[in-house]
């Protein structure tokens, strides 16, 4: 158990380091920071002068070393456009996205697992067909279109929900529902498949022979064993949601979140901020992995003994 945890910790550190490195090199190798920062009309001599001043003329590995030796102290440099530390800019919009993410993931998980269990308990039933159809619909929805349609229907035509903004619970309804649709569909599919697998195993026959009700068998026996793939899936969806997937929803509904800020940073090519955001995103992924690992241990207590 201890060894496993240490292994995981090392893996996480490597992941964060790797993500930051990859994003650093894509930014600095594939784009020229000086061209981004200066107007196109700047005379060439001034461009070179500026390049020297900023240290962008040094070999890329030297720049990388410079960057990483500051980054280990959580110093990702200042934003190029807003003169404040880029990590601060990266973190500032995060709570808003976290709000959306937590509610959307909770909604998708609870509904998804519930519907998936119902469908998987009776494969081929009317309920199952309905659930399967809905889940296919969920994973087929183009978010860019769905978001606009929801705004059109509920804000413009029906006028029951605010169009855009941040602050009240009513403002959260549309972003949450649109963000939850796709994870909901996937969770239903995974739960259904996983529970069907479990229900075919011999220990379920034992449980039936003990006289347990089907409800008890599914909830007490099968669900726990079916949980690991479901947890992996939900973890994956959460990571996606919190690390930029919310861009569309946040920009349509005017939600001042991480995705919106990331998009802005990318459009303005604010490289220190992009890298800081990549760092935040990697931290989120690591954190979610820890939670998924914990769920694994809860679902299968024998891991502790290995």
């Amino acid at each position: 158990m201890y060894k496993l945890a240490m292994h995981r910790l090392g893996h996480s550190a490597l992941l964060i380091f790797g993500v930051v490195t990859v994003i650093f090199f894509t930014n600095f190798l594939l784009g020229d920071p000086v061209r981004v920062m200066l107007p196109a009309s700047t005379p060439p001599e001034a461009v070179e002068e500026f390049r020297r001043q900023m240290g962008f003329d040094r070999p890329i590995l030297v720049q990388y070393w410079d960057f990483i030796s500051h980054a280990v102290f959580l110093d990702f440099g200042d934003s190029w456009w807003q003169k404040s530390p880029s990590l601060e800019i990266a973190l500032r919009p995060f709570p808003a996205t976290l709000q959306l993410g937590i509610v959307a993931v909770a909604l998708a998980s609870i509904l998804g697992i519930g519907i998936g269990l119902f469908a998987g308990a009776r494969p081929g039933s009317l309920w199952d067909k309905l659930a399967t159809s809905l889940s296919i619909l969920g994973v087929s929805l183009p978010l860019i279109w769905f978001t606009l349609m929801m705004a059109l229907i509920f804000s413009v035509w029906l006028g029951i929900l605010p169009t855009a903004g941040y602050g009240t619970a009513a403002h959260m309804v549309l972003p949450v529902v649109t963000l939850a649709a796709l994870p909901l569909g996937r969770t239903v599919q995974i739960t259904r498949a996983s529970i069907i697998d479990e229900l075919a195993k011999p220990y379920i026959t034992t449980a039936h022979s003990k006289g347990l009700s089907e409800r008890t068998i599914i909830l007490r026996h099968a669900l726990r064993n079916a949980l690991p793939p479901i947890a992996t899936e939900i973890g994956w969806e959460s990571a996606l949601l919190l690390t930029g997937y919310s861009i569309i929803v946040e920009s349509v509904y005017g939600w001042p979140g991480f995705g919106f800020a990331l998009y802005h940073a990318i459009l303005t090519r604010d490289m220190p901020v992009i890298i800081a955001m990549a760092f935040v995103a990697a931290m989120v992924v690591v954190f979610i992995n820890v939670i998924v690992d914990i769920i694994y241990v809860i679902a299968d207590p024998t891991i502790r003994k290995k």
Binding site: L14, L15, G18, V19, V22, I23, T26, N27, L30, G31, A239, L240, T243, G244, Y245, I247, L262, Y263, I266, L267, R269, I274, M277, A278, A281, A282, V284, V285, N289
Partner: peptide, 19 residues
């Protein structure tokens, strides 16, 4: 394993923005 755990959207947007 490494690539799959990188937030894909972030990577894709960054590369697209850069190239």
């Amino acid at each position: 394993d490494f690539q799959i755990s990188i937030p894909y959207f972030l990577l894709a947007l960054t590369i697209m923005a850069a190239i």
